[in-house]
Design a protein around this nucleic acid. Structure first.
Lengths: 351, 351
DNA sequence: CAAACTTTTCAAAGCGCTTTGGTCGCGTAA
DNA sequence: TTACGCGACCAAAGCGCTTTGAAAAGTTTG
C-alpha cells in the first residue's frame, strides 16, 4: 500500500493524505482522523527512500569505526557507545549506518556517505592527535561530532571528550601518594589523541611528585588483554620492576592482573593497578569497592550525548540556523577500588 | 553535480550516461570512456537514495542487535561479527544499518526495516530457542540469515551456527578424562538457543562419564565478568566446590579466574577452566598454548560467511531465482591451554 | 540501391514521496 | 451586494536516478 493507493481509497488527494499524516495544520481534524485511521487499518507506512529523496534527509547517521590494520582489532567500547547513541536515535526516528573501515579507506568512506547523500551526519570515532578527517568533513559540509578531540581546537567543530590529561594526572597522584615511585604506563596507540593526553597527564603527575619519567616504563599499543599481560610480565620479571601500573583500558588491566597473579603476587598488596574504565556493560568493576581502582567515565552516556549533539546540528542545519559548535569536556570519576595499596618495593627491599 | 548536469555537460542524454557508468553493453566504448572520464573529473557520484528509489534496492543490510533489558548489556561479540561481515559488504558495495533494540522493540524494528524498504536483507543476531523473528521475517518476505539457530529447523531458512552441543560435550569429556567429577557450568541466558544446546552437550558429556548432573552447579545469566566471578566465588567457598568450570564466554571465564586466584588457588592446578572462545580481537588467548583451554570458533569469520550467504540470497531474489536456504554447521576447535589439569579434589582430601 | 538488421542514442515514464502554487467555497466586513 | 480573507483541499512539479520503447545512424545483405 502506497500513498497513491491510500489516497484513492479515501477519495482524497495525495497532498492531503501526506499532510494529514505529517501533522501539517491545513487539514481539518475530521479528515486527519479519518486518514490516520485508514493508514492504521491498511498498515500503510511511507517508503523511507522516497521520502528521503523528496525531503533531502535520509534520517540516517553514520558511524565510521576504524579498525586497526595490524591486529584487525576493533575496540569493544564502540559497541557500548553505539548502544547509548542508539537510544537517542531511536527516539528521534533515526537509524545508524555503520562502516567498519581500515585507515586508508576512511576518507573515501566519509566522502561517499556525504556525497551520495546516504547519511545526514556522522560521528567520528577514535580521533588521532592530528586528524585529517576533521578538515575533510568540514569541507564536505556534513554535520559531525567527534567522540574525543584532536589537537587543533582552533577550527571550530563539535566534540565531546573526557579530560584525559587531568584524570591520568590525578590517577598518577593517587599512586605517588601511596608511595609508588616506579609506575608503568600502559597506554593506547600513541597516535590516538586520548593516548597522548593521558601520557601528558601521567607525566604531569610524575612531575608533581618530583619523579622523573623512565622511558622503559612507558608502553603503548592496542589495548588487548595480551598487551597488558606481556608487558607486565616482562617488567615484573625485570631487575627494577614497577610497583604500580597505570593502564588505559580494563581489558589491558585484566592482562596485567593475570601477569601479576601468575607470578604469585597479589594485586593491591604487592602491585597496584589503576585503569581507565569505560564502564562497559559486561565488564563489571561495580560495587561499593570495585575490584579495580579506576578513572571511570561511561562511554555509553557519552554515546547518548554525542547523538543528541549531532541531531541538534542536523536540525539546525535543516532550518538554516547555524549554531555554534558544541564542545564538552567531561570529568571522569576517580574510584578507589581493591587494586591499589601502599607501595611495596621489592627491588629496594623496603616494605 | 547530478546526472542531468553531467549529461548536459557531455551533450548526451541521461540514459546514455547512466548506462555508460553502470556498465550496460549498449554504449560504444568511446562514449563510455568519455563519460567515465568526465564523471571522474566532475567528481560525479550517483545519489544513493534516488538510485535506490529507482531500482528498489537500498544496498543496505540490517543488523538488529538485541540488548538485554536488565543490564543493558550488549554482547561484545557483535562488534567482531560485524567487523567480519563488513569486509564482505564493503567489497560488494553494501552498507550496514545497525539497530540496537530492546526485546519488545524487535518485531517493530524488523517490520519497519522491511516495509519502509530501508534494507535489502537482515542478519538475525542472538536467536532464542523458539524465536518469533523467524516466522515474522518469512512472512515479511525479507531475505535473512540467522547467526545461530532456533529450535524449529523445520521451516526452511538460512542459518550459520557452530555445533554447540558437540563442542560442549567434548569439552566436558576433556574434563572428565582429567578426573573431574564436579564440573560447574556457567552458561548464557537460558532462553538463548546456543545456551540450551551447550547445556545439552554438557549433560551428554556428564552422562558419557557416568556422572549425574547437579543443579547447584549449573548457572546461567548474562555473560559478564562479574557473573563469572560471583558464581565461582560462591561455589568455591561452598562445602563441595567444583574442581572445574565450563564457561560460555571468555569474559566470564576471566571472572572465574579472578575468583580462583583471589582465593590463593591456581588456575590449571587447583581448578580447571574450559571456556568457549569467540576469538575476539582484543581477548588474546592465542599462542601455542593459550592461557585458557577453550572451544574456539572465530565469530569474525562467521560474520564474513553470514554476510556472503545473505548477499547471495539478496542477489537470487533480485533475479527471481529462488535458491534453497543455506544452512551451515561449523565445528569448533578444542584447544588445550594452561587452564586445565588433573582434578585436585579439595573436598574429599584427595590429590 | 533498397530492405533488413544491428548498434548507438534518446525522450519520457516511472519509483513514492513532499511541497509549491493554486482553486473552491464559505463566512464576514465594507 | 461586492470584496476580501480564510480554511480545506487539490493538481502538478519536483527529488535524481533507472529503464522502457522508439528513433536515428551505421552496416550488411539480396
Amino acid at each position: 500500500m502506497n500513498l497513491k493507493q491510500l489516497a484513492e481509497q479515501l477519495g482524497l488527494s495525495q497532498t492531503t493524505v501526506s499532510r494529514a499524516l505529517n501533522g501539517y495544520p491545513e487539514v481539518s481534524d475530521a479528515t486527519r482522523r479519518r486518514v490516520q485511521e485508514a493508514a492504521q487499518r491498511f498498515n500503510y507506512r511511507p517508503n523511507a527512500r522516497a521520502r528521503s529523496l523528496a525531503t533531502g534527509n535520509s534520517m540516517i547517521v553514520g558511524h565510521v569505526i576504524p579498525v586497526s590494520d595490524r591486529h584487525e582489532m576493533v575496540n569493544p567500547v564502540f559497541m557500548d557507545f553505539i548502544a547509548g547513541a542508539g537510544e537517542c536515535y531511536t527516539r528521534a526516528g533515526y537509524d545508524i549506518l555503520l562502516s567498519v573501515v581500515t585507515d586508508d579507506d576512511e576518507a573515501r568512506t566519509y566522502r561517499r556517505l556525504a556525497k551520495d547523500g546516504i547519511v545526514d551526519g556522522v560521528i567520528v570515532h577514535g580521533p588521532r592527535h592530528e586528524d585529517p578527517r576533521v578538515p575533510l568533513l568540514q569541507s564536505l559540509g556534513l554535520p559531525f561530532v567527534v567522540h574525543g578531540r584532536t589537537l587543533a581546537t582552533d577550527p571550530a567543530f563539535s566534540w565531546l571528550d573526557i579530560d584525559n590529561t587531568r584524570s591520568f594526572r590525578r590517577a598518577t597522584g593517587l599512586l605517588t601518594d601511596l608511595g609508588h615511585r616506579r609506575i608503568a604506563l600502559l597506554n593506547g596507540l600513541e597516535w590516538m589523541d586520548f593516548a597522548q593526553r593521558r601520557r601528558e597527564g601521567y607525566l604531569q603527575g610524575l612531575a608533581d611528585a618530583g619523579l622523573t619519567m623512565r622511558p622503559e616504563l612507558m608502553h603503548s599499543d592496542e589495548m588487548t588483554e595480551d598487551f597488558g599481560h606481556d608487558v607486565a610480565a616482562r617488567l615484573l620479571d625485570g631487575s627494577e620492576p614497577p610497583t604500580a601500573f597505570l593502564v588505559s583500558s580494563c581489558i589491558t588491566a585484566l592482562g596485567v592482573r593475570r601477569a601479576v597473579e601468575t607470578r604469585g603476587m597479589s594485586v593491591g598488596r604487592d602491585v597496584s593497578i589503576v585503569t581507565h574504565d569505560d564502564d562497559l556493560s559486561y565488564l563489571g568493576n561495580r560495587g561499593d569497592v570495585p575490584s579495580f581502582t579506576a578513572t571511570r567515565s561511561s562511554v555509553r552516556q557519552a554515546g547518548r550525548r554525542c547523538a543528541e549533539i549531532l541531531l541538534g546540528l542536523i536540525a539546525s542545519r535543516q532550518e538554516d540556523q547555524p549554531t555554534p559548535p558544541v564542545q564538552e569536556l567531561w570529568e571522569s570519576q576517580l574510584l578507589v577500588g581493591r587494586s591499589t595499596g601502599p607501595a611495596r618495593d621489592r627491588a629496594e627491599g623496603t616494605t
